[in-house]
């Protein structure tokens, strides 16, 4: 066997959220794409197998192609959200309608505080999560990055705690990685960073913290080249996950040579080489 040949690829466990198993740790939204075709192709390049959708009143004007015509349901798990709901009651009704539409009991719960910040309302979120869990939903719960709120949601029995890295669509990345790290220590449910991703390094940085996955939408849909960005997100998610699993080295103040210190010509003595001062 040629000792210079190697083909080892690291393996990873799938992401299990409630009763659903996902191969990819990237979850991708279907909003804001210029066309349905662009969305379809971006989803494919992202490598995701879970896509989010929203529930809205039907357009009574005229027949339009449905989003679902562009989503291969054999390939993707469809995760309906309760985006746009500002109270627990509306979010619960929306989840119930989503269950009727898709025939599945998983839902991304969002109960928002106000339209300008779109920050999650923690009290309404907790109320709605409790009711939906009691109804048998697998609740993937969008929430703020407060670790104690995450603990309370995990105790209620949500399938995943999904803290916002930063406000929805803001592209600021994970603003408080320490809060995410603490949350990861406090609960054993999968933590998925949801919202705030701006670019690939945000995904990698989040995954390096040890979160189970990242959910994004605008960063791909609104990129100058959504398809290229979708591929970048796919690679960043894998890179960050592998870096987390591999275990990074400690940060040091001083250098630590990679090459041997011994055996340098001239004895490796500082200031004796050609051109050195006598």
């Amino acid at each position: 066997m040629n000792p210079a040949t190697s083909s080892t690829e690291p393996v990873d466990a799938p992401l299990v959220v409630g009763r659903t198993t996902l191969r990819s740790r990237l979850l991708v939204g279907t909003g804001k794409y210029a066309t349905n075709e662009l969305m379809r192709d971006a989803l494919a390049l992202s490598g995701t197998d879970c896509v989010t959708v929203a529930v809205r009143r039907v357009n009574l004007g005229r027949g339009e192609p449905s989003l679902l015509d562009y989503i291969d349901r054999a390939r993707y798990q469809i995760l309906p959200n309760t985006a746009g709901c500002y109270d627990a009651k509306t979010a619960i009704r929306t989840a119930e309608l989503a269950r009727e539409l898709l025939g599945s009991t998983w839902v991304k719960l969002e109960v928002l505080g106000d339209p300008r910040t779109l920050l999650p309302d923690p009290i309404g979120t907790l109320e709605a999560a409790r009711e939906l869990v009691a109804q048998g939903f697998d609740v993937l719960c969008y929430c703020s990055d407060d670790p104690r709120l995450g603990v309370r949601l995990a105790e209620i029995g949500v399938a995943s705690v999904m803290p916002a890295g930063s406000p929805i669509g803001s592209g600021q990345g994970v603003l408080n990685p320490n809060a995410i790290r603490i949350l990861l220590e406090l609960i054993d449910k999968p933590v998925i960073v949801d919202a705030g991703v701006g670019t690939a390094s945000d995904v990698a940085a989040a995954m390096e913290l040890g979160v189970a996955g990242v959910l994004l939408n605008s960063a791909v849909a609104l990129a100058r080249e959504p398809l290229r960005m979708a591929a970048a997100m796919r690679d960043a998610c894998r890179a960050g996950r592998n870096a987390f699993l591999a275990g990074r080295i400690e940060r040091r103040l001083y250098a630590n040579a990679s090459s041997p210190l011994d055996g340098v010509i001239g004895g490796g003595v500082i200031g004796t080489g050609v051109g050195a001062k006598a």
Binding site: G29, T30, G31, K32, Y33, M39, T52, V53, A54, V55, R56, R57, V58, S66, L67, L68, I78, P80, N81, A83, T94, L97, A98, L101, L102, I168, G169, A195, L215, L216, N217, S218
Partner: peptide
């Protein structure tokens, strides 16, 4: 009545 469907969203 509310008649709803699925649309693009995050």
């Amino acid at each position: 009545l509310e008649l709803v469907t699925l649309v693009g969203g995050g």
